[in-house]
Design a protein around this nucleic acid. Structure first.
Lengths: 188, 188
DNA sequence: TAGCACATGTAAGGGGTTACATGATTGC
DNA sequence: GCAATCATGTAACCCCTTACATGTGCTA
């Protein structure tokens, strides 16, 4: 159900089309939730049917027409209700960790390049987050003082930054372990 | 598909029944993957049908009989093949972050108790991880030197510990932000 | 003329959650 | 007598991923 709520939050921050939402989910919303355009279109249709959203057809020149969605009163009420319900603390799902533990039954050294690839992907993502932080929150172009929405967006982004830094440090630790296993304990 | 691989890793570490697997997924495997018993039984049935696992009926006194699963040659081959395939670096899914950003459209202060509850849940989990680390890897009872499997399990656990510590620090940051918003920028 | 950005969808299949269902033994 | 632990499952439903499908206009 969280995709619905993420869409409500994003459309409250700024109305937009399914296509635009898909791009936001690749960027800022992506700090905490991901979704593909296929999923988004389906859920938008369902939410409109349930009266949570308004649609407005926007004709465009030189581009296909788009449907601009905005949150209806009922959608806002649904979000408020959800905000007041407790949710369960989530646990992680980390496929790479399954591989790391599985490496004991194969060649641990063979995992090194895969872990390095992941490390690089997280490092790139960290770079994008830091650039965004400077642009939107801490740089000279950023609005000051920030309103409540901005403060909360920044707090969530700081979470994304902390997550990427932690992950990079952990992957360095894993690489260290894999290198030590290669030199110290050759497999039988 | 990762549940299958997590089950293969766990059964290679030690064969066991669906029930036992479900308990491991609440504990050690839970550092990086979760699954309920319903899911596990369904997947075990499918994997046995595909010849990835052997089953052995174990009669027990005073307890229901159990089916003990072990990895078959074909299962081991499937794991090896998967270990050599690259996987996509994952992104986070964090429902609480959706709520934090959504709080801008409600009362941010109303989220404080929810965030505190999550902080406590992560703190408890950190405590369990640290206890487990002492018992299995760093305490006087731990086998020394560790074999490759032990080193890799420990590396994954260190990742779980780092994740919980990072999350707790971030939630403290969020709580700070929510308190500041309460005193500094009352909503209109 | 090839590729990218814009724009919206359908269909199939597998993954995951929640609710329902049963039944024995052990400990309080 | 009641709750917890051990033990295994089915059914319904929604979520998510992957592949397929279409079409315009701009730019290199």
């Amino acid at each position: 159900m969280a995709l619905e709520h993420a869409i409500l939050v994003s459309l409250l921050e700024k109305p937009g089309s399914g296509y635009e939402l898909a791009r936001r989910f690749e960027r800022s919303i992506g700090y905490f939730w991901t979704a593909t355009h296929q999923q988004i279109y389906r859920v938008l249709g369902r939410m409109e049917g349930a009266g949570l959203l308004h649609v407005r057809e926007v004709p465009q020149r030189g581009r296909p027409d788009k449907k601009e969605y905005a949150v209806a009163a009922r959608g806002r009420a649904a979000l408020t209700a959800w905000l007041h319900e407790p949710i369960e603390p989530e646990s992680v799902r980390h496929e790479l960790a399954v591989k790391i533990r599985g490496a004991a039954f194969d060649d641990p050294a063979a995992l090194i390049s895969e872990v390095e690839r992941h490390r690089k992907a997280h490092d790139d993502r960290l770079g994008r987050y830091l650039t965004g932080e400077l642009r939107d929150f801490t740089g000279p172009e950023a609005p000051r003082p920030l309103d409540a929405g901005g403060e909360l967006q920044h707090a969530v982004l700081r979470g994304g930054i902390a997550y990427e830094r932690m992950t990079i440090a952990w992957l360095d630790d894993v690489l260290d372990t894999l290198h030590r296993l290669r030199t110290a304990t050759p497999r039988t």
